[in-house]
Simulated scan of single mutants.
Amino acid sequence: MLWVKAFHIIAVVTWFAALFYLPRLFVYHAMAADQAGIERFKVMERKLYRGIMTPSAVVVLLLGSWMLWDYAWVAYKQMGWLHLKLTLVAILYGYHWYCGRLLREFAADRNTRSHVFYRWFNEFPVLILIAVVLLAVVKPF
């Protein structure tokens, strides 16, 4: 089971790298003025979302579910920290989905938000990461 946990952590790190980088690309894309730059951002965003971010999220979900089923399910009712962690992870999957929606808006040249919006949007997964790591390590309740 340690192998599963190790690969789960690797997938989480990869997923978060993409969750941090894609909104940063949105910042630069929203600021881009030349057509060549805009097209370059579209390709980068699509490849990051489809080639790294979504596959990593799937691996996180599969391995996390495996660990939950294997050794956490028995005591799940007594682990309040895990309930909150899984809720935050579900919110993160919603963020992931919303990033995909934003990506499609950029791809269709329908973005209406400024780079300032994306700068703030980029900070959200940091807050989730801090909370999830603290919950998983400290297990406060």
Rank of each mutant, 00 (worst) to 15 (best):
A17R: 01
M67P: 04
W69K: 08
W73K: 10
I52C: 07
M31N: 12
F121R: 01
L2K: 09
Y76E: 05
K77A: 15
S114A: 04
H8Q: 11
Y28P: 00
V4R: 05
K77L: 15
H96S: 02
L88P: 08
F20K: 02
I52T: 10
P140W: 04
G64W: 03
T14Q: 04
L127I: 14
H83L: 10
H29S: 15
A11Q: 04
Y28V: 01
G51P: 08
K77E: 14
A75C: 02
D109F: 15
A36R: 10
K5E: 09
I10Q: 07
F7T: 13
A131E: 02
A107Y: 11
V59W: 04
L88D: 08
G51Q: 06
E123M: 08
Y95G: 00
R119I: 01
W66L: 15
A108L: 13
L25M: 14
A32F: 01
W73D: 10
Y71G: 15
W69Q: 11
E123D: 12
L88K: 06
V27L: 03
Q35W: 06
D70G: 11
L102G: 03
A36F: 12
Y93M: 15
K85M: 12
G51N: 07
A108V: 05
L134R: 06
L92M: 14
S65W: 12
L92S: 11
H83I: 09
L68P: 04
L134Y: 12
P140G: 07
N111K: 09
W69V: 13
L127E: 01
V4D: 07
V74E: 11
L82W: 04
V13A: 14
I130H: 00
M79S: 06
I9N: 05
V126N: 11
E123K: 09
G64K: 05
K47C: 09
M1I: 14
M31C: 11
K5M: 08
G100P: 05
M53T: 06
W120Q: 05
V116A: 12
R50A: 15
R104G: 08
L62C: 14
I128H: 03
L68M: 12
R24F: 01
L82R: 05
